[in-house]
Design a protein around this nucleic acid. Structure first.
Ligand SMILES: [Zn+2]
Ligand SMILES: [Zn+2]
Ligand SMILES: [Zn+2]
Ligand SMILES: [Zn+2]
Lengths: 127, 127
DNA sequence: TTACACAATGTTATATTATAACAATAACTA
DNA sequence: TAGTTATTGTTATAATATAACATTGTGTAA
């Protein structure tokens, strides 16, 4: 379950050591020297890594970052801050926020199994 | 400010009367008989409509819906529920939720100017 | 009115993101 | 060891989005 396959490990390592979210074709370019030559090989590994919660997709940017939040259980509940100038992305780890959202019910009383929240603003450096 | 241009009006009308989110190329297909023939014409209108808050983009689906929530001021604060089976999307209008998120500060004390929240689950019909 | 600025349009080409389809191999299970 | 499932490799193609440039419309102020 924590045993990644060869391609999954190569791609996870790349994303994990990146200071910024990586796009699929950027990943492809960077792992070609390791023998991963086709988009599908990248997308398959990304799909799996997202599924098991090792990485998250930043939907508004079509990019991927490693999970750095023990609170987000297997990609079911994710929150990020995104700087609109430098594009720095940080995973938000807030007990209050995750509790609030996990318990949120809409007006029909519906509870949700999963959510993704993206905050936008300016990071410290860019203000 | 509420005066849409010709292409903007055509595309807004289509989205506004659609019961489901529409994708850019679905829109393109549906407005070709009205003289809008190129993707760029669609994307330009979509960009403008998003900017002025008449429509929202559902990021996880690359699709667009009309705003039906007076609380979301010009696309700065959006929340949706998405059914993972039938793909029905509803804009969430909750005073509590929008107040909570608008006032949310991360651990660095940063407040955000904008957010997008997508909840996933099963709608009434699909349960 | 006329000149200017700015918004919107039209058009062709191209870039970027993602999946279909099929064959082969590796890893796990009974 | 046979059967099953996950993973890989490969080619082609689908789906989403933007670049670049020329033209036309619309509002505004001299
Ligand atoms: Zn996480
Ligand atoms: Zn920044
Ligand atoms: Zn809205
Ligand atoms: Zn449903």
């Amino acid at each position: 379950m924590d045993n990644l396959s060869k391609n999954q490990q190569i791609i996870f390592d790349l994303i994990d050591k990146s200071p910024e979210p990586l796009k699929a074709y950027t990943i492809l370019f960077n792992v070609q020297k390791k023998g991963i030559k086709a988009p599908l090989q990248v997308y398959r590994a990304l799909d799996k890594l997202v599924e098991i919660g090792k990485i998250h997709k930043i939907e508004s940017r079509n990019a991927f970052i490693a999970c750095h939040n023990s609170r987000c259980q297997v990609a079911k509940a994710t929150a990020f801050s995104i700087c609109e100038i430098c594009e720095k992305v940080t995973e938000i780890s807030s007990a209050g926020l995750s509790k609030y959202l996990a318990n949120f019910k809409d007006k029909d009383g519906m509870k949700y199994s999963k959510y993704n929240l993206e905050f936008f603003g300016l990071c410290k450096k860019c203000r």
